[in-house]
Simulated scan of single mutants.
Amino acid sequence: MLDLFIADDHQLFREGLVSLIQSQSDFHVIGQADNGETALDMIKTHTPDVAILDISMPCIDGIRICEMVQQKQIKTKIVMVTMDDDVRTAKRALQAGSHGYLLKDDAFSELIHAVKEVSEHKTFISQKVASQLALSSSEPQSPLTHREKQIVQLIAEGLTNKEIAKKLFISVKTVDTHRFRAMKKLNIHHVVDLVKYAFSHGLVEK
């Protein structure tokens, strides 16, 4: 029996997923939430086998929840269910530790299979997104780590080091270190050029 948790701020969609899962004799829904803060608390408290999360939710988004689950070494596996078919968002989710990336258009036909796959330590990605990921894999890889990209993105969005530190739950000194390393790797010497890099490489929407 697999214990599942579902979080999505669209009530009808969430209840539809709950009904679908409850139709399976080997699945059990232990709870649901309409915001990220409640979702994270539930995952910490109950440690479901699989958590099904929307990316865009009030309070805390699904990707940030995924990062925090990884940081705290919680064994819950996460399947993102989203309308966002942008390959960059999918990469962010997978880099954050998500085991599944399922488009809402495919949710009712593929969710059961997706949950079974991730429960067996496999990765499930909707076919449309998987195809885009395959195409993008041939593109030159960024020299920046995931954390460095995050910080460059937030700098480009206008956040101060203190605001970035608070948002990412790290120290200001750590932000400075990652920014220095990113600029060194990119051979950039001024913050304005770092911002230009972020926009030109898709870290921030134009």
Rank of each mutant, 00 (worst) to 15 (best):
I52Q: 00
C66A: 09
V115Q: 10
S119W: 13
V115G: 02
K75R: 13
K44L: 05
A107M: 07
S109A: 12
V81D: 03
R64G: 01
A90D: 02
Q70C: 04
P58Y: 05
T89Q: 13
A114H: 10
L53H: 12
L111F: 03
C66K: 02
K116F: 02
M57T: 08
Y101Q: 09
D106V: 13
C66T: 15
D54Y: 06
D85N: 15
R92W: 10
R92S: 06
H113P: 00
S98F: 06
M68A: 00
I63P: 00
D84A: 00
S119T: 12
V87S: 06
E110T: 07
A107Y: 09
D84Q: 12
D84H: 15
D85P: 06
T89A: 04
T76L: 06
M68D: 08
R88M: 13
K77C: 05
G97F: 01
K116L: 08
V115H: 11
S119Y: 15
H46G: 00
D105N: 15
R88N: 11
D105C: 12
G62N: 04
E110S: 08
I52R: 09
D106S: 10
C59G: 04
M68G: 00
P58S: 10
A51S: 06
V50N: 08
L94V: 08
Q71I: 01
K75P: 03
D85R: 14
T76A: 03
M80T: 14
A114Q: 13
Q71Y: 04
I52M: 05
V79K: 07
K72A: 09
A107C: 13
L53V: 08
T76Q: 11
S109I: 06
D84T: 07
D54W: 06
I43L: 06
I112N: 06
D61G: 08
L53D: 00
A107R: 14
T45D: 11
R92V: 07
Q95S: 12
I55M: 03
K44I: 13
D105Q: 15
H46D: 10
T82A: 00
D61H: 06
E117H: 13
F108D: 07
L111P: 10
Q95W: 02
M83I: 14
A51F: 04
M83Y: 05
P48C: 11
I43T: 06
L103Q: 13
P48L: 13
F108T: 05
K44S: 03
H46F: 12
D49H: 11
K116H: 12
A93W: 05
T47K: 15
T82H: 01
K104G: 05
Q95L: 11
D84R: 10
M83T: 14
T45C: 01
L102I: 10
G100T: 12
P48E: 07
D106K: 08
T45L: 09
V87I: 14
S98T: 15
K116T: 09
M80G: 00
P48T: 14
L53R: 07
D106W: 13
S56H: 15
V118E: 00
L53C: 03
K91N: 04
L94K: 11
S109P: 02
Y101M: 03
D49P: 00
Q70T: 11
I52F: 00
I78M: 05
T47P: 01
V79W: 04
Q71H: 11
L111A: 09
Q95V: 01
S109L: 02
K44H: 09
T47Q: 15
L102H: 14
A51V: 04
R64H: 03
L102D: 12
I74N: 01
K44V: 10
T89S: 14
